[in-house]
Design a protein around this nucleic acid. Sequence first.
DNA 1: CTTTTGGTTCTGCAAATACAGAACTAAAAG
DNA 2: CTTTTAGTTCTGTATTTGCAGAACCAAAAG
Lengths: 158, 158
Amino acid sequence: MNEIHLSNNQKELIEKFGVFLESKGWQPAIARVLGLLMISDTNELTFDQIREVLHLSKSATSSALNFLLNTNKIEYITKTGERKRYFRIRQIMFEDILKEEQDMRHKFISVLKEVHELKESKNLNGLCETIKDVIDYLEFTNNHLPKLYAEWVSNRRK
Amino acid sequence: MNEIHLSNNQKELIEKFGVFLESKGWQPAIARVLGLLMISDTNELTFDQIREVLHLSKSATSSALNFLLNTNKIEYITKTGERKRYFRIRQIMFEDILKEEQDMRHKFISVLKEVHELKESKNLNGLCETIKDVIDYLEFTNNHLPKLYAEWVSNRRK
DNA sequence: CTTTTGGTTCTGCAAATACAGAACTAAAAG
DNA sequence: CTTTTAGTTCTGTATTTGCAGAACCAAAAG
């Protein structure tokens, strides 16, 4: 069956990463699978390898992998003559996570704008001004982040 | 009893804001209370006013308010000769929310650093390089955000 | 001293979550 | 045709969450 082995360091790190993702609303098992694929020495792991090291049921493994596939966090490769799939992290996953943060800020901005509009139409000051500032600041940073990214790209590879 | 009244617009907006906060991991009732304090025409609301418009139980209202007080999202004022408290949004709340995002990124960075360290020590390339880049980028933006904030402050009040 | 006000705290429960286990399936191997 | 492989799907359930309800309490009013 070709089981893989994890050091204690690796196990702890997978849990730590898992807890972090849980705090962001992820399901425990899904978080562990993603963590495993990130931390394991072997980049590509099979269904059963994942199931065994993480002590998950087949159903949990299956739905975790499908969730991660559907949300573009992982992908799989196959090998000629083998039916099983080898799952691995999609490199772009990290960019996706940052993009999700950006989306979150956009949603925040859009609710705040609605609140501001409603309050402004009633000439309610105080909070209204604060909200306006927050919107302003969020939009300002959101507009500057792409530039910052470009700057980083051009500076990194010396 | 002095009940307050909300327009349909306001009710919907409170729910919308509530759903947004739920997606960030907040409990429904707590999210509604914060939304109410932000959206209501009256800035300061009493325990019973909040309880009544939101159709919450006393216990839910109590624990929501205490949570929001403990996490510095709201504060209360009192009026001479009255025992009851008037709750309101803390203006700084918004800055806090942004700060919490920053903290989240820091936590992300610190786990990624551990992962990177472990992988680097084993000369595992591929993912390792990607992780290094993500760490780099996150730190880069985190370092530039304060400058961006300063820039925004100096530009806003013409 | 009794009642009212403005809450707090404790207990219980309905609903949602997150997973295990077993039955199932489709393709390939024997 | 039977068995094995590589999963998927369905059902059940332990655990957690999020709140209601009732009992409780301290300060003020009557």
